[in-house]
Nucleic acid binder design. Structure first.
Lengths: 166, 166
DNA sequence: TATTGTTATACTCTATAACTATA
DNA sequence: TATAGTTATAGAGTATAACAATA
C-alpha cells in the first residue's frame, strides 16, 4: 500500500500545515461574519454569489453542484432553504425538461449586496493585510496551476466513473 | 456599516477564490482517504497527529482545543470517540487536578502510521505535484506571515473577551 | 439505458448553556 | 471568582440509496 517515500520534506510540510491552518481560520471568520450579517452559511453564500455573478442570474442544479463541490441531495437541500427564504426561485429548465433552473431573486441580490462588504473586509483584514501587492500576485500565480491540476485530477481512489469529479 | 471599498481587486479576488477552491478540494480528498484508510475524520486525524508529534505523546485538553480551533465540548466529544476506539487515553493531569491529560496509545500510533503514507501521497499528488521546489518555498514564505497575522488577530467582530480566540 | 433532481433517512459534527470540581 | 472539563441538548449539514420523470 506504501510504495513511496513516507513523508514530505520539511518545507512542504510547513506549507501544507500553514495552508490548512490559514484557510481554517479564514473560513471560520468568514462563516461567522456571514451568519451574523445575513444568516447565511458559507455554502449558501457561495451559491448566491455564483448566481449573482452569472449574467442571467441563474444556473442549472447540476452545474451548481459541480461548481461548489457538493452532492446532489445536498444541493437540493440548500436550494430548498434558499428558496424558502425567498432568495432564489426554482423553475423547470427551458431546454431540458428534466432540469431545474435556479434563479436569484431581487431579495437574494439585496442580501448579497448587504453581506458582501463585510465579507470583503474580513478577507482583506485577515488574509491580505500582511501581503504586499507583489505577494498577492505571487500567491495567485502559485495557486492557479494547483487549482487547474486539482480540477483535472479526480481523487484517483474515488469512483472516476461518474462525471467530472463530483 | 460599509466604510471601505466594497471589493477586492481582481488579483486578490482570484487568489482568494483559488485558495478556497484548492483547499476545499484538498480537504475533500484527504478526508476521503482518512475515512477509508482508518475511519478517521480530519479533526480526529489532527488530534492524533498532534499527540503523536508531542514528545510525551500527551497533551492537555485545553491545549488541544486551542490548537485545533475547537470548542471545549466539541473536543470532549471527539476525545470520547477516540478513547472509545482505544486510540487515546484520558487521565487526570498530574499538576492540576482540574485538568485532563490525553495520551495517544500504541493502537493510536499504529493507526496513525497506517494512515499517514496514504495521506502524504494525496497531499503530494494533489497539492505539490504541479509545484517546483522553489514554488513550495515561495508558497511557504507567503503563508507564514499570514498564519502569524491570523493567530495574532482575533476576528474583531467576535467576542475578544474570553481567551485566545475560541 | 442514462441522466436530472427529489425524498427519506440516518449519521456526524458543532455549539450553547448548565453544571461540577478544583485553583 | 475564575478556570477545566463534561453533559445535555438541539440544530445544521452531509451523504447514500431508492425513486420518478425525462432524454
Amino acid at each position: 500500500m506504501s510504495d513511496s517515500p513516507p513523508s514530505l520534506d520539511p518545507v512542504q510540510l510547513g506549507a501544507y500545515f500553514d495552508l490548512i491552518e490559514v484557510t481554517s481560520l479564514l473560513r471560520h471568520a468568514v462563516e461567522q461574519q456571514l451568519r451574523e450579517a445575513g444568516g447565511l452559511s458559507y455554502v449558501q453564500f457561495q451559491l448566491l454569489a455564483r448566481l449573482g455573478d452569472s449574467p442571467t442570474g441563474s444556473s442549472r442544479m447540476t452545474d451548481l453542484a459541480d461548481g461548489v463541490v457538493y452532492s446532489r441531495s445536498g444541493l437540493t437541500y440548500q436550494a430548498g432553504l434558499l428558496e424558502k427564504a425567498g432568495l432564489v426561485v426554482r423553475s423547470p429548465s427551458p431546454d431540458d425538461d428534466r432540469g431545474v433552473t435556479v434563479t436569484i431573486t431581487d431579495a437574494g441580490r439585496a442580501l448579497l449586496a448587504e453581506v458582501l462588504p463585510g465579507h470583503v473586509e474580513v478577507v482583506r483584514d485577515l488574509l491580505f493585510q500582511p501581503l504586499s501587492r507583489t505577494d498577492v500576485s505571487a500567491l495567485a500565480g502559485l495557486l492557479a496551476p494547483v487549482r487547474d491540476h486539482m480540477r483535472a485530477a479526480p481523487p484517483r481512489s474515488a469512483a472516476p466513473r461518474r462525471r467530472g469529479g463530483r
